[in-house]
């Protein structure tokens, strides 16, 4: 069964339609990549899936794990296992990473009728997962993303993903602005977290990341629609030839 099934999705912001009928099905155990020019709607898709209220869905359906995702509040989506690694992570002064994640994990556990994690287990888990993304434990007591470099913010997104163990994660240009070492850390994080039961949607501009996270499918998003899908070799072709030929092909 598909883990997530997006059908004919149309969404607008302030009356301006950005997604014009998007279709995409992702099964558990798969990694999909979406590539596409700036402004084509990649972040919009990510925001709609995460439940950002400014975006209005006018048509279509999104079924996640058999349930209607669009009907759920953003917090319930997260609790059900959807995760978005933001293109621009937000700084939250005064809220420590540790407190933030502890609150999030316990709210998710409550949703799933599980007891709250005890403090020791939580600490242990945090230390373990911090290692996975090579962030120092001193980060954990600092305010969320405050004073973090661009690369540290992106690593922190992957760290949060590692802590929350989502079923379906969208990574929105997590590789942008990262040097090769940081990018490897991000890729390594994804590869370690990947199982047969979860799935990833990797939004990226560069084929580079896909050398380290091997996608099962690559899609081209242009003007709010997926206009071409292929295997991982499509990423190389896009890197070499740009997007115009795909667009031309799509019109033809």
């Amino acid at each position: 069964m598909a883990l997530i099934e997006i059908k004919n999705l149309k969404a607008n912001i302030y009356g301006n339609e950005i997604l014009h009928g998007l279709n995409l099905t992702i099964n558990a155990g798969e990694i999909h990549a979406i590539m596409g020019p700036n402004g084509s709607g990649k972040s919009t898709l990510a925001s709609v899936l995460a439940g950002k209220e400014e975006f209005e869905v006018t048509e279509g359906t999104v079924t996640f794990d058999g349930i209607d995702l669009l009907d759920m509040s953003p917090e319930d989506r997260a609790r059900a296992g959807v995760f978005l690694a933001f293109q621009y992570p937000v700084e939250i002064p005064g809220v420590s990473n540790a407190n933030f994640l502890k609150t999030a994990i316990n709210e998710i556990r409550k949703f799933r009728n599980q007891d709250p994690l005890d403090a020791m287990d939580f600490l242990q888990m945090m230390k373990e997962r911090a290692k996975l993304v090579e962030i120092e434990s001193s980060f954990l007591s600092r305010s969320v993303n405050v004073g973090f470099s661009g690369g540290e913010k992106k690593k922190n997104e992957i760290f949060q993903m590692a802590m929350l163990e989502p079923k379906f994660a969208v990574l929105d240009e997590t590789d942008s602005g990262l040097d090769i070492d940081a990018m490897k850390v991000v890729a390594n994080g994804v590869n370690k977290l990947k199982t047969d039961d979860n799935a990833f949607l990797i939004i990226t501009h560069y084929q580079r990341l896909l050398d380290y996270i091997i996608p099962d499918f690559v899609h081209v998003l242009s003007e709010g629609r997926i206009i071409k899908s292929g295997g991982k070799e499509l990423a190389y072709e896009l890197e070499e030839r740009g997007y115009d030929w795909v667009k031309a092909e799509a019109i033809a």
């Binding site: 995460a50 509040s73 917090e75 997260a78 609790r79 933001f86 992570p89 994640l101 709210e107 929350l164």
Partner: peptide, 16 residues
């Protein structure tokens, strides 16, 4: 939204 997108309820996110 950043907090809410991690599973924290809106009221709690505001309070934080």
């Amino acid at each position: 939204f950043y907090l809410v997108s991690r599973g924290i309820g809106r009221k709690k996110a505001e309070a934080m």
